[in-house]
Amino acid sequence: MAAAAAAGAGPEMVRGQVFDVGPRYTNLSYIGEGAYGMVCSAYDNVNKVRVAIKKISPFEHQTYCQRTLREIKILLRFRHENIIGINDIIRAPTIEQMKDVYIVQDLMETDLYKLLKTQHLSNDHICYFLYQILRGLKYIHSANVLHRDLKPSNLLLNTTCDLKICDFGLARVADPDHDHTGFLTEYVATRWYRAPEIMLNSKGYTKSIDIWSVGCILAEMLSNRPIFPGKHYLDQLNHILGILGSPSQEDLNCIINLKARNYLLSLPHKNKVPWNRLFPNADSKALDLLDKMLTFNPHKRIEVEQALAHPYLEQYYDPSDEPIAEAPFKFDMELDDLPKEKLKELIFEETARFQPGYRS
């Protein structure tokens, strides 16, 4: 834990890192770190609560700039109880001085990944967590956004079992017609939660990839272990087919990539493993919904509104309290091709509203 900075004593240090967030945020305490930044909790002297502050230093890398800009653009436009918001952003007053960006968010005690390492969940908890994931996802999908990296560590939890989806750095506007060349190379989302079509096709992607990830998360809540822990690309596919069985001819016809289709045709026939054999203690309604989410063919996979209306979630289902976005989200430009200098300018502009004396 960093010592509390005395008023006016300059930035606090946390594990050798400068955290320049005073005077409003003090009493910093280390939480963890990701690929390009550290997260601390801090005391907000204005709202009198502890908050989470993520320090991001992305400006050396085009990919990190892209992810940072995506996350900020999306989260500043989203407003939903099951999606983490941005409360404040701290950065230098000029673009030349801006080396880091500090993002202030609600402090959540833990995440689903940490929880599943230590606790076996009751059916009631599984049901409530799944409902909140789908409630947040309904809003995301209504904005025409794909999260693309749903996994237990991106689901934040607090002691009252509130759940918030975080990390929109890989999110995209849904565009089933656009052929994202190089899709697989830039697709760094965790393999275990990846839909089979991501490994088999490169053309376009749809909201059904997020539903697949939610199915993987439900299976993990039922058993405290990942359902498809593939060691590499082909191993991942083999794990999936080992449980779902061989795809039907109709399902194979959806695979545009001939090499991928021929690979699947070359494999020995596998039978589907019954879900109640894998999860003998699970609620039968939970397994019915799991089956509809972990469907090989993305066109037959359940959609988020149908999933919310499934009998497993009937005690929570309330369409009048499951809000959607006001308007579909649009990125003005494809960020993939922009140089990091341009992305830095866009991050600077996007964060201006939090600067003292800002006038829109």
Rank of each mutant, 00 (worst) to 15 (best):
L137C: 04
P23S: 10
G245K: 05
G22H: 05
D44P: 08
S320F: 10
I95N: 14
P356N: 00
R225D: 07
E322H: 01
K138P: 06
K203I: 15
C216T: 04
H180A: 09
M293E: 04
L200E: 09
E71D: 12
S142I: 04
R67Y: 13
N154Q: 08
T295P: 15
T206D: 05
P339S: 13
P247N: 05
H180T: 09
S360H: 12
H141F: 03
P176Q: 13
H61C: 07
H180P: 09
S284Y: 10
Q97Y: 04
L290H: 05
L116H: 07
R225A: 07
I227T: 03
A325Q: 01
Y131N: 15
L107C: 05
P247L: 10
R135I: 01
R225C: 12
F59K: 14
V101L: 15
Y36G: 15
E96A: 12
N47Q: 10
D283W: 02
A3E: 06
L241E: 11
K342N: 15
L200M: 13
G16E: 12
G230D: 14
N154Y: 14
S320L: 07
L258R: 00
Y64S: 14
V304N: 06
I240L: 04
L130R: 05
L200H: 06
R50F: 09
E60Y: 13
F279K: 05
H80R: 00
G242T: 04
G22Y: 09
D283E: 15
E303Q: 01
G136S: 02
L157T: 08
S57T: 14
V188S: 07
G37E: 13
D20Q: 03
A3D: 13
H120F: 02
W192A: 05
L107H: 07
L294F: 00
A309C: 03
S320T: 14
A286V: 10
A35H: 04
H232I: 01
N154P: 01
T94E: 08
T159V: 12
K151H: 05
Y312S: 00
E305L: 11
I56N: 15
L75Q: 14
N271W: 02
R194L: 10
P93I: 12
D332E: 13
I165A: 02
A189G: 07
P274I: 02
G215C: 06
K73I: 14
M108C: 04
S223D: 10
I240F: 15
A2M: 14
L258N: 09
C40P: 15
Y312Q: 01
Y25S: 03
A7G: 03
L244Q: 14
P152E: 08
I211E: 10
L258H: 08
A35Y: 12
Y113G: 08
T68P: 15
C166S: 15
F331W: 00
T118W: 08
A5S: 14
E60W: 10
H310K: 03
A9I: 04
M221L: 15
L137F: 00
I89E: 03
A282C: 03
P93N: 02
A309P: 10
I74H: 02
G357D: 15
L258M: 15
T26P: 00
N201S: 00
N144W: 02
L134Y: 09
K344A: 08
Y312M: 08
H310M: 03
I227H: 06
L252N: 00
T206E: 11
R194K: 13
A3C: 05
L346G: 13
S284K: 09
Y187T: 02
A92R: 06
F19V: 14
V49Y: 12
K231I: 09
I133W: 06
D100Y: 14
A325D: 05
K117T: 09
I217K: 11
F59L: 15
A92L: 03
T63L: 13
P11L: 12
E186I: 03
Y263L: 12
D106I: 00
I31G: 01
S208V: 10
S360Y: 15
L112S: 03
L155P: 08
S122Q: 10
K73E: 12
S213Q: 07
L134C: 06
N47P: 00
I255W: 09
V51C: 12
L156D: 04
D44K: 09
H180L: 15
A171E: 10
P268F: 05
N257Y: 15
Q306E: 09
I140L: 13
F331I: 15
G215M: 06
L294T: 09
A286M: 01
K138D: 06
W212H: 10
G245S: 12
C161N: 04
L146Q: 14
A5H: 06
S223T: 14
H61M: 07
S248C: 13
S320K: 10
I243C: 09
